[in-house]
Amino acid sequence: MQQLVTELLQGNRRAAARLISLVENDDPQKRELLKDLYPHTGNAYVIGVTGAPGSGKSSLVDWLLKLMRKDGLKVGVIAVDPTSPFSGGAILGDRIRMQDHALDQDIFIRSMGTRGSLGGLSRATREAIQVMDAFGKDIVLIETVGVGQSEIDIVRTADSTLVVLTPAGGDSVQTIKAGIMEIADVFAVNKSDLPGSDRTVTEVNMMLDMKKSKEWRPPVIPTVSLINEGIDQLWEALQEHRRYMEESGRLLDIRRERVGRELTEQVEYLVKSSIWNQVKEEIELESLVEKIVHRRQDPYSAAADLLDKINFYGQEAEEGD
């Protein structure tokens, strides 16, 4: 396993692919591997691309890749598509639009199924970003699943978020709804050769101008991915936002928040798994469930008893002494 990390740091693409599989499959050695990778991360800038199914996310990513490569940037792409809640299978089809880049050694594309995650990303997106970051990518592009209004995990994961809209997406009330319309750092109105495009651009602009804080005002860029229109402006807008994030100190702020959340999650994970390991050894959960379901005990005191039995509070007191 250590070997894989060494190979990754030497630029071995097969090692990168295998490491992403290991974190995605929740391999027992996952935490050790991520620990080894961590010192090599922190250089990649993460750009999220989100929007409704079929709005043109993959096609825009394809064009952005071309511009990024022209600027000499190495790019990792994580393209997420939904996992079936019934079979657990998935069709991962975002690559279809990106296959021009398949042989570019400085682009690494990985498709991921959501595997039960509901926020628009896959369960292991964050860990896959770490792998690509350590792999030396300057930019990691994340394409979310096709989203509706509220699958907005991307905003907690990306440094810049691009929201892709299409014309005729409903009346102007849609633009002031909470959720996806609030998370964009840059808007693209794709398929803007279709009727209704000007109106969509105007309505989004009006919504944005109602906001008081003007520190960063998301630009709204009309694009037509089919004929490569507006993509230069879109890439320029994304770079502009990155400059703003870096110069204003916002980037450091959101990374601080993110690391804080991550630390909390890791502590909770360790506490949880240590509790459940002990519980599994000492207590039969089924008999407790049986008691509760027949109303001989309530779940609240049963939970408290359970922690008593493994001496959870006792341990805490000892440490406090």
Binding site: G89, L92, Q99, L103, I109, R110
Partner: peptide, 21 residues
């Protein structure tokens, strides 16, 4: 989990996609 890459792929594209995925 099915990765589908569409039409007209060269053997090189297929092998590289298999590797990355």
């Amino acid at each position: 989990e099915v990765i589908y890459t569409g039409l007209h792929q060269t053997p090189e594209q297929i092998a590289e996609t298999a590797l990355q995925e």
